[in-house]
Design a protein around this nucleic acid. Sequence first.
RNA 1: GGACCUGUGGUGCAGCUCGGAGUGCACGCCGCCCUGUCAAGGCGGAGGUCGCGGGUUCAAAUCCCGUCAGGUCCGCCA
Length: 571
Amino acid sequence: MRDLLCASINSSMIDQKVTVCGWVAKRREHGEHLAFLDVRDRSGVVQAVVDGSVDVRSEYVVRVTGTVRRRPEGTLNDRLATGEVELTECSVETLASAEPPPFQLDERLDIDEQVRLRFRFLDLRREKMQHNLRLRAKVNATLRRAMDAQGFCEVETPLLWAPTPEGAREFVVPSRLHPGEFYVLPQSPQIAKQLLMVGGFDRYYQIARCLRDEDLRADRQFEFTQLDLEASFVTQDDILAFVSEAVLDAAEAVTGVRPGVIESMTWAQALDLYGTDKPDLRFAMILQDLSAVFSKTEVKAFGAPTVKALRVPDGAALSRSRLDQLTDQAKGLGAKGLAWFRITSEGLDSPLARFLNEEETRAIRAVDDAQVGDLVLCVADEYEPACKVLGALRLTLGAQPVGEGAHHYVWVTEFPMFEGIDDEGNLQAAHHPFTMPHPDDLDLIESDPLKVRSQAYDLVLNGWELGSGSVRIHRADIQSRIFKALGISDEEAESRFGFLLGAFKYGAPPHAGFAFGIDRLVAIFAGEENIREVIAYPKTQSGTDLMTGAPKEITERQVKDLRLKIAAKGS
RNA sequence: GGACCUGUGGUGCAGCUCGGAGUGCACGCCGCCCUGUCAAGGCGGAGGUCGCGGGUUCAAAUCCCGUCAGGUCCGCCA
């Protein structure tokens, strides 16, 4: 039907007769004897010169046959890839007429996302969406190639899985053949892939769709895609190397430049220096610890186990109302308050300045090599909240949008094994209950569990958590100690994870794995702050699909087949 | 479950604080003119439940209350 793509036409084809197909991007009429058509396909645009009487409008689907010609002197367009040439003596066949689109498909105006999503099929014609989805395809292809090259075998795991009442809320699918019983859609192939290890697939991967019925965000959809992998007879370092290889390959395929080795820090370092477990390393602003200086302070506001400080370059210019906003933010995050000090040539400018002794003043003045014109913020609290509050302020004051600027990858390792305590007084697993504790901390499981580090790790890019993984427990004795610490009885473990634990009795190899979000990675590669921009048909924040109208009611027949009973709305 | 922002011809905005006739701008659309445009140009035209409901008022796009939709965030996401 066509010979080639619009944008592939160039000056080497002069005098050739060619046929292209596409949409009319623009028609410029100059009386009855001359008009220009911009014909657009997935590659771009080429100009066709036609008679003014050719009746095609925007977004008509056309097949144009014409002779390639160098544009006349003075009419070349250097802003267009095909700007040196045009098609002349054209015959234009209308393959489909079209109503004017509800919004303009060029990139001149920012269109409301609501309208874009209602007419997503038109939005997809836009250059940006074409680019983003093709970028995504390239990333997928590269990841597959990288995993194949490292000896991994792609295995597809079921979408219809058994309910496991743990972790994220699951999407539920009623069974027709077994009324009253349900499948769930997998929040991740976690158990399936661990069973593959028992099954002898010692290097598994999958580009896997995962589904979680939790509230949506800019970086979270109900369904998302992960590069999921698991391997046997490997260490944590092996997994980091496998994943690094795949991610760096993808980065290279997309940007043309292979990033250097991904740096690594422990969870404890990340918290201490950046106040978060997903540090954005595109900018410094490292947290300072002034606890020692203030350990015997007379200043009430600093009477806490930890005093953390953050230097804000050029922050002395921030207005009082801005500082009040930051204070509100700190309080909203649970801090008792926020102390601020403007560094001026006369000294510290702050409501607290006159209460500080000489040593304390010197310490504030010297935070992170502060200069005149800078601002120093301090939070006094327990260690972890102090770090986290300042970490949040660091982002407020220093971060740029996630897709802008350089790409800074970092591995965060040695996450704590447990975090906090649930309503029933039991410890909570920080990652999941099959995570292997750090070998040096096994003795602490019973005596000081909150100190136990795990062999769990995250990959972080520009402050976004790309994914996480861990070395798994394959030994029954350690697993039962962990269940015990989590308050999970033998019976409960059996009912919830029985088929996994049962499988492990038949020879489970030591194994470890990882999964990272492809939507997030591609969004950052594409310079987007929202993963909807790299998903063909995304949901809105309230979980609806504006194009299809989903979710919708089902027919009486379906309700009957499934033996469901629909309660009245609002009850 | 909560906080904040947005909603005005097909699209993007302004108008809203301080109420006074659906007022304005740009794009698109329709018609006419135009033989080198490419954000084409000129002239003319059509197109509106100011998201929806209620209230205040002589009078509401504008003020108040409620509600719906979209977005950002908190909770949530082992």
